[in-house]
């Protein structure tokens, strides 16, 4: 029963998210936030505000997220359907994907590291400042 309840709660947030996305799209056609992201945000808000206990979604949520890669297999296999459309540019697209991932990863790493260092420096300064006052 516990697992059934957890599946229900997760599906509930998923459906709520999709409904919200549908509503947003009807009201503001230029904005596009996927229903899954809204569902994720809603569940996070429910958890943070303690309306929902972590224990109410933990088993199923952890099962799904710790085996995530498995659920992507059908989507990955379906790439085969598009190989024909891509044919002449397939190799070039793969090259672009690989190069851009390396490029992005390098700059993300550098910017994150820089921000972390900056943040720590600011914190230290703040601390020193408050120490001085004390």
């Amino acid at each position: 029963m516990k697992i059934i309840k957890q599946i229900f709660i997760i599906l509930l947030f998923y459906v709520l998210g999709e409904m919200a996305a549908f509503g947003i799209k009807a009201l503001f056609p230029t904005v596009f936030i996927p229903g899954t992201i809204i569902g994720l945000a809603l569940m996070l808000v429910a958890l943070l505000s303690k309306k929902l206990k972590l224990g109410d979604v933990d088993d199923v949520g952890s099962f799904l997220t710790s085996n995530m890669a498995f659920f992507f297999i059908p989507a990955a296999v379906s790439v085969l359907e598009y190989v024909n459309i891509l044919k002449t540019s397939f190799i070039r697209i793969i090259a672009i994907i690989v190069l851009s991932i390396i490029f992005s990863f390098t700059l993300v790493t550098l910017s994150v590291k820089a921000t972390i260092i900056l943040q720590e420096k600011l914190k230290k300064k703040k601390q020193e400042g408050s120490d001085h006052h004390a």
Binding site: I10, L11, F13, Y14, G17, E18, G35, T36, I37, G39, L40, M43, L44, L47, L54, V57, D58, V60, G61, S62, L64, T65, M68, F70, F71, F72, I73, P74, A75
Partner: peptide, 15 residues
């Protein structure tokens, strides 16, 4: 299997 992709993204709230 594919069906779980949506609920899976929502479940990321757990980790």
């Amino acid at each position: 299997i594919h069906l779980f992709l949506g609920p899976l993204i929502v479940s990321l709230a757990v980790p």
